[in-house]
Amino acid sequence: MNLEIITPDKKVFEGEVDSIILPGKNGQFQLLKDHAPMVSTLLKGDLTYDIKGKTETIIVDGGVLEVSKNRVLVLAEAVI
């Protein structure tokens, strides 16, 4: 699935990932390929994504998430 992480200042990341773990209001949640469409708010915390077995982590300072047709768009307030 395609992940795009954007802040008001810049595009932080764009690429194909295998899975994503995000900081939600009720705790962390995971997205995998073919996830149902959704919109969610994000809290401050670790956003972790896997690319071919390699794990990367970015700390987001809140934001909004949209999932649709294997495309995940994260509009982060800031990346720390």
Rank of each mutant, 00 (worst) to 15 (best):
P8A: 02
V60A: 06
G15D: 03
V74F: 05
E16I: 14
V60N: 04
M38T: 06
I5P: 03
T57A: 08
D46L: 05
R71E: 08
L42F: 01
M1G: 15
P37I: 10
I58F: 13
D61L: 07
K52E: 15
V39F: 13
V79H: 03
G27T: 11
L42R: 02
L31Y: 01
K52S: 15
A76N: 02
N70M: 01
E14D: 12
N26K: 13
V12K: 08
N26G: 09
A76S: 05
L75V: 14
H35R: 02
K44R: 09
E77A: 07
V67K: 05
V60Q: 04
I6V: 13
T57N: 07
I6M: 08
P8V: 04
H35T: 08
K52V: 13
V60T: 11
D50E: 14
E4I: 03
L75Y: 07
A78Y: 01
G53S: 07
L3S: 00
I51V: 15
T7L: 04
L31E: 00
T55G: 07
Y49K: 08
A36F: 11
E66I: 11
L22I: 07
D34F: 15
L65W: 08
Y49H: 09
E4Y: 01
G24W: 03
K25F: 04
K33F: 11
M1W: 10
D34Q: 15
S19P: 00
A78S: 09
A78F: 00
D34P: 07
L47H: 03
K25L: 06
Q28H: 06
E66T: 12
G53P: 00
L22S: 04
K25Q: 07
G15Y: 05
K25E: 04
D34C: 12
D61T: 03
T55R: 12
D50F: 07
E66C: 11
G53N: 05
D18N: 11
G45D: 00
L75I: 14
L3Q: 03
Q30C: 09
N26P: 01
I59T: 15
V64Q: 11
D61P: 00
L47G: 04
L42P: 02
G63M: 06
A78V: 01
S19V: 07
T57V: 12
P8E: 08
G15I: 05
E56G: 01
I20N: 02
V39A: 15
T7H: 02
G24N: 06
H35I: 08
I58Q: 12
G15L: 05
A36L: 14
G45A: 07
V64P: 00
D34N: 15
L3P: 00
A78I: 01
